[in-house]
Design a protein around this nucleic acid. Structure first.
Length: 155
RNA sequence: CCAGACGGCCGGGCAGCCGCUGUCGUGAUCCAAUCACGAUGGAGGAAAGUCCGGGCUCCACGGAACAACGGUGCCGGCUAACGGCCGGCGGGGGCGACCCCAGGGAUAGUGCCACAGAAAACAAACCGCCCGCGCGCGCAAGCCCGCAGGCAAGGGUGAAACGGUGCGGUAAGAGCGCACCGCGCGACCGGUAACGGUCGCGGCAGGGUAAACCCCACCGGGAGCAAGACCGAAUAGGGGUGGCCGGCGGCGUGAGCAAUCAUGGCCGCAGGGAUGUUUCGGCCCGCCGCCCGGGUUGGUCGCGCGAGGUGCGCAGCAAUGCGCAUCCCAGAGGAAUGGCUGCCCCGUGCGGCAACGCACGGACAAAACCCGGCUUACAGGCCGUCUGGUAUU
RNA sequence: GGACCUGUAGCUCAGCUGGAUAGAGCGUUGCCCUCCGAAGGCAAAGGUCGCACGUUCGAAUCGUGUCAGGUCCG
C-alpha cells in the first residue's frame, strides 16, 4: 500500500516560504529508502546520471503511483566513517526539504527512485547549494505543473 | 621565573526552527498492527586497530595424563582472567626528578661464528722469546744459519684468542706463588622470594649465540551474536498415509547372515496423452485428500542491572579489595543519535592608545552482543607532585 | 566476525629460507652510430629496503610493536 503523507500547509509556512524559500525548517518526513542492493544496481544501470558539486545523482522512473524512494551511497573514497555519515545525512536532509517544499507548493513528486552518491566535497559545499541542486533534480524528474495546482496522486 | 620529569582530568557551552529513533503514558479505527499527541533518553576517550584475556552461546568430549602445536618466561602481589597492572630485585642510561630492559637454562645435546688470522673451541704456534749442541764470521761483546727441545709473556688479525692488573719468580716463561678485582663452590646472616652481605675454599674449569634448533616450568578443546533459539507466506521439492489407476525386462536403492523380499528411483521396449492433418524427432505419463519434518525472503528473541556509574568511609606503600548510600545511563539494522541558524568561549591575523570591531580556525574519530586490558590517532586546556637552575628574602 | 598476503630504484619484481656484495628488466641522462629520428651499441646516475625499537660482532633478511595497501571466507 502506498504510504500516505498529508501535509497541511499553514499560512505561516506559506508566508515564510514566500519571503525566504530556502529556510531549513519545512515540515515533512524523509522519503522511504531503497531497501535492496538490486535497486541501486538497477538505478545505476538504467537511470539518468547527472553530476553536481557535492553529489552525483541517478534517477530512475518507476511508476506515477509509487512514492519517491531515496538511496544514499558514500564509498570509502569519500573519507572515514564520520565524514561519510555526515555526507549521507546532509544529502538526506536536503532531499527531505526539497520534497517537502514541493508538497507545500501542492505539487508532490512521485514515481521515481533517486540515488544520491556522495563526493569528497559533500560535507564542504554550502547547504543552500545542495538544496538548490535537489530542487533542480526534482524539477527535472517530475516537472511542476503549470499555474493550477496539480492534485496529488492519492486523494 | 626558566628548563624538565611524573601522575590525573576535560575533550566546547546555551538557545531557536525542522527531522530520526528507543521507552513510558493518553487517545483513535474492531483485536493484532499502525497512527497522532505529550514526557523522557539517545556515540567515545579512544567507540578505532583487532594485539591479548574473559563472560555468554553452540559443537565435541568419561575424568585425567602423555604426545603434537601455539603462547608465556627475574621475584612477590592484584585480578574472573591475561602477554595486563602494582610493588620489589638485577642490569643499563641521566647532574637529578626519573626513564628503559623477551630479564629462565650455554657443565643435556646439536648447529653456526663470514673476511682476516697460526689458531674460532678435544686448543694451537705465524712473527717471535729462551736453554743446549754444531758450522761460520768477529779481537771481543755478539751475530747469521741449522738441529733437538722449552715457552705462550710480547707483536700482529679479529666483534671475540682459553681470566685482568701489579709484584715476585724463571734460562725464557706460565696462577708457578702472592695481593686486589672477576669467576665458581660451600657455610652463615638478612629477606616470603628474586636477591644482597660476610667469611672460607678452589688457581680458573665453563668464548659467544637459545629474538638458531632445543631443554625446563606454566597456560591453552573448537568455533563464534552471521553464536544460538523461536515463528514461518507463496512456489517447488522430501517423507508417511488413504482412495483411484498402473504392462515387461535390466540396473540401482533399502531390509536380511543368506535364500529372498520390497521399491510409481533410473534406463530400454511396449502402450497412452497433448500441440497442426500423415511420417519422423522432441515433450509428458500418475491424480486427489490428509499429516509430518527440513528450509529461502522475512519477522521476533538473544539485547543490556552490568566483573555498572557516582559519592563517602575503612584496609593496603600501591595495584586492588570490602562496606554504606545513591543512580538507571544508547540500543540502530542500506543501519537512528541529525540539518540549519544565532549568541557566548578559546586561538591566530588585521585595524585601533584603549574599550572594541572584522576575518579565519577549533582536533582525532563514530556503537553493531558485552566487559577487562594493550596499542595507535588527537586542536586546545586544567590540576597536582617532584627535579635542576636563576633571582629575592 | 574470522583467516591471510604484500611493502626493496620513477614502474614491475628478485634477493630473505641459510645474516656479511642491494641486484635484474623497462624507464631517465650522456656519448657513439645517422643528414635527422627510431632501433642498436657503450657508459652513468638513481635506494631512509614502509616506520620504530630490539637481538647480534654484523639486520633488506631474525624478534616485537606499529602504519599503509590488498585478498579470501561466512
Amino acid at each position: 500500500m502506498t504510504r500516505l503523507i498529508l501535509i497541511k500547509p499553514s499560512d505561516q509556512a506559506f508566508s515564510r516560504l514566500s519571503v525566504q524559500p530556502k529556510v531549513s525548517s519545512v515540515t515533512g518526513s524523509p522519503p522511504p529508502p531503497l531497501p535492496k542492493r538490486a535497486d541501486f544496481l538497477r538505478a545505476a544501470a538504467r537511470g539518468q546520471k547527472r553530476a553536481y558539486p557535492g553529489l552525483v545523482a541517478q534517477t530512475l522512473l518507476t511508476s506515477p503511483d509509487q512514492p519517491v524512494r531515496l538511496g544514499l551511497t558514500a564509498s570509502r573514497k569519500v573519507g572515514n566513517a564520520v565524514i561519510r555519515n555526515r555526507a549521507r545525512r546532509r544529502l538526506r536532509e536536503a532531499a527531505r526539504l526539497a520534497l517537502a517544499e514541493r508538497r507545500v507548493a501542492n505539487q508532490p513528486c512521485t514515481g521515481f527512485d533517486l540515488v544520491l552518491i556522495a563526493r569528497h566535497d559533500t560535507g564542504a559545499v554550502p547547504f543552500a547549494a545542495l538544496r538548490q541542486t535537489l530542487a533542480d533534480l526534482l524539477d527535472r524528474a517530475n516537472p511542476p505543473a503549470p499555474s493550477p495546482a496539480k492534485p496529488g496522486a492519492n486523494p
